[in-house]
């Protein structure tokens, strides 16, 4: 299989939570989501209750995939930052470490300049975490196929469809 399996461990998750919560405050944002390029939600913070975060994650990934396709068409590698401006709320999307998408939702209480500035700093920290996470995933999968699903039975699967 190309690329490596995505795994999130408790430790890295906590580190990411700290960073995005800090970013939320410093950028005066409403909410922040970290999404895998394949459309899976990794972490979120802020005002996330009224939002359907699963849909948000999938559409974000679709959006990034489509603009990535456009980028290639004109000979760019990717567009690493996207900004969508609404009447009240805005969305700032940035690609981090080539594989995750940082989504910052903000309104008039903040500004594009401030969000950009703070995102840049947070991106560096998140990149470091993902670099070490990818290394950890590699090491642990090289150590053996230690999967929590190693003991799965047909019954387990049948039960899912009851």
């Amino acid at each position: 299989m190309p690329g490596s399996q995505m795994i999130m461990y408790e430790e890295e998750y906590q580190e990411i939570s700290v960073i995005i919560n800090k970013l939320l405050k410093e950028a005066n944002a409403k909410s922040i989501f970290l999404v895998d390029k394949n459309g899976q939600l990794i972490a979120s913070c802020g005002d996330t209750d009224e939002l359907d975060s699963t849909s948000l994650a999938s559409l974000t990934a679709g959006n990034i995939a489509a603009t990535g396709g456009l980028a290639k068409l004109i000979g760019e590698k990717e567009f690493s930052i996207l900004f969508h401006e609404g009447e009240k709320d805005n969305i700032h999307l940035s690609i981090i470490a080539q594989r995750v998408i940082l989504v910052v939702i903000f309104d008039r209480k903040s500004s594009l300049g401030l969000v950009r500035l703070r995102v840049k700093k947070a991106s560096d920290s998140i990149t470091k975490i993902f670099e070490s996470l990818m290394k950890r995933i590699e090491d642990e999968s090289a150590a053996g196929p230690e999967s929590p699903f190693a003991e799965i039975t047909d019954d387990d699967i049948d039960n899912l469809f009851k």
Partner: peptide
């Protein structure tokens, strides 16, 4: 490429 999240104890698969 499934995504295993040990923190939230979830596994996501794409069909």
């Amino acid at each position: 490429m499934s995504f295993i999240n040990y923190s939230s104890r979830e596994i996501n698969c794409k069909i």
